[in-house]
Design a protein around this nucleic acid. Structure first.
Length: 647
DNA sequence: GAGTTTGAAACT
DNA sequence: CAGTTTCAAACTC
C-alpha cells in the first residue's frame, strides 16, 4: 500500500501537481469541486489500492459465480470465511460486486432494494426461503450472499475508491454496511419460512443469530465448506440442484435426510411430493388437488390455499434456485418444470390416481430406459423416480445423481430444449412461427409440433392434444382434428362437431375419450374465459374439475399455474413463456411465484439453449401486466440469472 | 392385467 | 436430414 502510494505521489507531485496548483484555473477548480487536491493525492493511492484490491474482488466475484455453478450441479461449499463478516458486508458487497461484474444486474437488484426497502424483507424472505429450502449454497449466490462479502471485506478499498469522494476507505463504513446489511438480513431471517426454521432447528444451527447467519452460515462458517456435502443439508442442497429439486425441496422441512432414498421415499409421501412437484412442475397442482381430495375433499378453497402456501414456499425457493443456480438446469427446464409436464402428468396422474392411490408424484413404468431417457416421464419432467414408479433398473434416483445429471447434460447437449416445456405460449410462437398462435384458441402451441398419423390428434398420443393446445403449421400430423385447433388453421372446432366426426369414424371408444377430451376442452375454454377473471375462481373451478376428473394438463397450467404459479419450473427446464404468459394473464398476485418457475424454464432455455430466452419475455410481459409489488420480485428474478449464468 | 396401438425419442 | 428402431405411454380388450 505504502510503496505504491509513494511512488505515485512522487511521480505526480513533482511534475504536474506543482504547476497546476499554482495556476488560477486549478484554484478555481478546487473551489468548485468537492474534491480537493488532498484527495487527488490520496485517490491515486486508493486507486492503486483499488487496483490491488480490485483484482481480488474480481476474483472473488468469479469465485462466487463458480460457487454458484458448483452449487447448481454439485453442491459445493461456500468457501465463505466468516459468516458474520460476510453477512454484514453483504449488501454493499453485492452492490460493488455486481457493479463491477454486471452493472445491469446490480442496477436492477440495487434498484429493487433501494426502491422498495419495505419490500426488501419480502425479497429477502424469498431468498432465505429458497436458500434454506433449496440450498444453503444458493444463498451465497444471492447478491447479498456471503461470498462477495469476504471479497469485499478485503476489497473494501475498491468500494472506497468510489466512495473516496464522499468518505474514504474507512472501516467505519463497514460498520454502517454491517448495520445495514444486518438489517436486511435480519428482516430476511425473521421472515424465514417454517421450513427454513425446521432446517435450522435440525441443523442445530450455530450459535449465532440465525437470521444473519443463516445464509452464509450453513455453507461456510460453521460447517466447513466441504461439510456441505457431508452434512445432510449439503446433500439436500445438492439434490435441490437440477432434478432433485422438486422432491428434495419439500423434504427439507421435515426431512433432513439428504439421502436420496429418503428423498424418494419422502416423495412418496403426499405432502412432500406435492410441494416439490408444484415448485418445479405443475404436477404439483395435480398432486395438490389430489391431496386436497384425500385430505380436504370438501374444501376446494382450502385446498387452494394450501396449495398456494405450498407454492409460495416452494415456488419462491424454486424460483430463486432456478434463477440463481439453475439457470442452466434447466432445466429450461426444467424446467421446467413445465406446462408440458403438467399436462402430461395430469392425465397420467389422473389415471394413476384413479387406479392407485396416493401417489402424488409422477410415476413411470420404464423397463429398459433406466429412466435416463426422455421416454421416462419422470426424467423428462426433471424429477426423480419415486416409490410409486414401476420402473425397472431405475437410475433416476438421488443415489445416481451424478448419472442423472450427466445424462441430462448429454441430452441437453443434443437438444438444448429437450427439457424445456413443449408447449409454448402464443406470443412466443408468434415471434417464431407467426400468426398461427393467434389462431389457436389455446393461445399456445406445441414447441415442435406433433407428428401424428393415426390418432388424428384426438388422443393423448398427440402431444399437442395432450398439452391442450391446437396444432400448428409446425405440426406434421395427418388428418388433424385436434379439438383445440387444427393444423390447417381452423380455429377450435366445436366439440360436438368433433364428436360427430369421430363417432362417424369409430363409435365406441370415442365416447369415453370424447368425454374426456370435451372436458378438457371445456376446461381450457373456461380457463381462457376465466383467465381475465379472478385467478382464484378459475383455480377453484379447475380444482373442482380436477377432482371430478383428470384435468388436462393445460387446464391445470392455466388456472392452477396462474394462481399458484407454475412455470416451471421452469425448470424452468424451463417451461416456456407460455406458462409465464398464462400465469400473467390469469393471476395477478401469485404471479411472482409462477414467474419464478417460469424463470426456471426460461433459464433452462436460456443458458443451455441460448436459443430462446424466455426471461426477457417474462420480464416484458410480466412487467407490463403486473402490479408493482410483484413486479419488483419478478425483476429481481431476472437479475439472479444474470449473476449465476456463467457455468 | 395383458395385449395392442401410437408417436416421441433415440439411433443409424 | 431422413429412415428405422426403440421405448413407454395411451389405449383397448
Amino acid at each position: 500500500m505504502d510503496t505504491p502510494q509513494k511512488s505515485i505521489t512522487q511521480i505526480e507531485t513533482p511534475v504536474s501537481k506543482s504547476r497546476f496548483e499554482d495556476s488560477p484555473v486549478f484554484n478555481y477548480i478546487n473551489s468548485l469541486s468537492p474534491i480537493r487536491p488532498v484527495k487527488s493525492i490520496p485517490n491515486p493511492h486508493q486507486f492503486s489500492t483499488l487496483n490491488f484490491t480490485s483484482p481480488p474482488s474480481v476474483f472473488t466475484s468469479p469465485h462466487l459465480t463458480s460457487s454458484h455453478k458448483e452449487s447448481r450441479f454439485f453442491k459445493t461449499h461456500h468457501p465463505s470465511p466468516d459468516p458474520t463478516i460476510l453477512v454484514q458486508e453483504s449488501p454493499d458487497d453485492s452492490k460493488s460486486n455486481e457493479e463491477s461484474a454486471a452493472e445491469a444486474d446490480a442496477t436492477t437488484e440495487f434498484n429493487i432494494d433501494a426502491s422498495t426497502e419495505m419490500e426488501q424483507p419480502q425479497i429477502v424472505k424469498y431468498d432465505v426461503k429458497e436458500t434454506n429450502l433449496d440450498e444453503t449454497t444458493d444463498l451465497s449466490l444471492v447478491p447479498y450472499a456471503s461470498p462477495p462479502r469476504e471479497d469485499n471485506g478485503e476489497d473494501a478499498p475498491g468500494m472506497e475508491m468510489h466512495d473516496n469522494v464522499q468518505g474514504k476507505n474507512e472501516t467505519p463504513d463497514w460498520d454502517r454496511l454491517i448495520a445495514d446489511s444486518s438489517e436486511f438480513l435480519i428482516f430476511s431471517s425473521p421472515n424465514d419460512s417454517e421450513a427454513f426454521r425446521c432446517l435450522m432447528m435440525q441443523r442445530a444451527s450455530p450459535s449465532q443469530a440465525p437470521s444473519v447467519m443463516m445464509p452464509t452460515m450453513q455453507p461456510g462458517s460453521i460447517n466447513e465448506p466441504e461439510s456441505s456435502n457431508a452434512s445432510p443439508y449439503g446433500a439436500v442442497s445438492v439434490l435441490h440442484r437440477g432434478i432433485r429439486r422438486r422432491c428434495l425441496d419439500f423434504e427439507m422441512p421435515g426431512n433432513k435426510q439428504t439421502s436420496s432414498e429418503n428423498n424418494t421415499a419422502a416423495c412418496g409421501s403426499s405432502s412432500r411430493c406435492v410441494v416439490p412437484s408444484i415448485g418445479l412442475h405443475l404436477n404439483a397442482l395435480l398432486m395438490s388437488t389430489k391431496d386436497c381430495k384425500t385430505n380436504n375433499t370438501t374444501h376446494d378453497y382450502s385446498c387452494s390455499e394450501k396449495y398456494q402456501v405450498g407454492l409460495q414456499g416452494s415456488s419462491s425457493t424454486l424460483q430463486e434456485t432456478l434463477d440463481q443456480t439453475e439457470t442452466e438446469t434447466r432445466e429450461d427446464v426444467t424446467v421446467e418444470p413445465t406446462l408440458e409436464e403438467l399436462h402430461l402428468s395430469s392425465p397420467k396422474k389422473k389415471r394413476q390416481l384413479e387406479a392407485g392411490e396416493g401417489e402424488s408424484c409422477k410415476r413411470c413404468n420404464c423397463k429398459k430406459s433406466k429412466c435416463l431417457k426422455l421416454y421416462c416421464e419422470c426424467f423428462a419432467a426433471g424429477v426423480y423416480c419415486i416409490e410409486p414408479c414401476s420402473c425397472i433398473d431405475c437410475f433416476n434416483k438421488p443415489i445416481h445423481e451424478d448419472t442423472v445429471l450427466a445424462t441430462r447434460k448429454q441430452i441437453e447437449s443434443r437438444n438444448p430444449l429437450a427439457f424445456a416445456p413443449k408447449v409454448i405460449k402464443s406470443s412466443d410462437l408468434v415471434l417464431e412461427t407467426g400468426d398461427d398462435a393467434s389462431k389457436t384458441p389455446a393461445s399456445a402451441r406445441h414447441k415442435r409440433g406433433c407428428n401424428c398419423k393415426k390418432s388424428n390428434c384426438l388422443k393423448k398420443y398427440c402431444e399437442c392434444f395432450q398439452g391442450g393446445v391446437g396444432c400448428s403449421i409446425n405440426c406434421r400430423c395427418e388428418g388433424c382434428k385436434n379439438a383445440f385447433g387444427r393444423k390447417d388453421g381452423s380455429a377450435i372446432v366445436d366439440m360436438e362437431a368433433e364428436q360427430e366426426e369421430e363417432n362417424e369414424t369409430s363409435g365406441k371408444n370415442r365416447r369415453a375419450k370424447n368425454q374426456e377430451n370435451t372436458e378438457v376442452y371445456l376446461m381450457r375454454k373456461e380457463e381462457s374465459s376465466a383467465l381475465p377473471a379472478t385467478p382464484m375462481s378459475v383455480y377453484r373451478q379447475q380444482l373442482v374439475q380436477l377432482k371430478n376428473m383428470m384435468p388436462p394438463p393445460q387446464s391445470v397450467l392455466g388456472g392452477g399455474s396462474s394462481s399458484s404459479g407454475m412455470f416451471n419450473s421452469q425448470y424452468t427446464r424451463k417451461p416456456e413463456m407460455k406458462s409465464l404468459e398464462t400465469v400473467a394473464e390469469d393471476g395477478a398476485e401469485e404471479m411472482p411465484e409462477i414467474l419464478s418457475h417460469s424463470s426456471i424454464d426460461n433459464i433452462n432455455a436460456v443458458s443451455p439453449n441460448g436459443k430462446r430466452v424466455s426471461p426477457p419475455h417474462m420480464d416484458s410481459s410480466s412487467s407490463g401486466r403486473r402490479s408493482g409489488g410483484r413486479k419488483l420480485i419478478l425483476q429481481s428474478i431476472p437479475t439472479f440469472p444474470s449473476l449465476t449464468p456463467q457455468h
